[in-house]
Amino acid sequence: MSLLPFLVLVIIGLTLGVLLLSISQILGEKQKNPRPHDIYESGMDPVGNALKRYDIKYFLTGILFLLFDVEIVFLFPWALTYKDSANKELMIAEFLFFMAILLVGYLYVLFSKSLKWDD
């Protein structure tokens, strides 16, 4: 299988983006007014630096996403091999065991208030 189509699309995308930006750069109006170059903060003078701490919950969400997504990724091969498997009972037992672990993990996350956003 060749990766050529993928490369072609990346090149098309990059070309399209760069081309449109440069056309606009060439045709667009140019002025020396310094006002638009300020940080936009609803017309007020900017207060402090923007790149500082933000709520830990976003980070937690990211970590939880990784955990759950990996568990779901494990389910894809299972779902695709079920139809051709000889021992269906074993497959179902595995599935239920896996889901039970997933459920325990989910309940832990729920009761640890990691998903509580309304405070």
Binding site: S24, Q31, H37
Partner: peptide, 22 residues
Amino acid sequence: FLFKEEVVPAHVLKPLYILAPI
């Protein structure tokens, strides 16, 4: 869109700022 001024504000991280839309 094509005839608007391409403003690159002074405070941005310029390479990433231009790269992001592309």
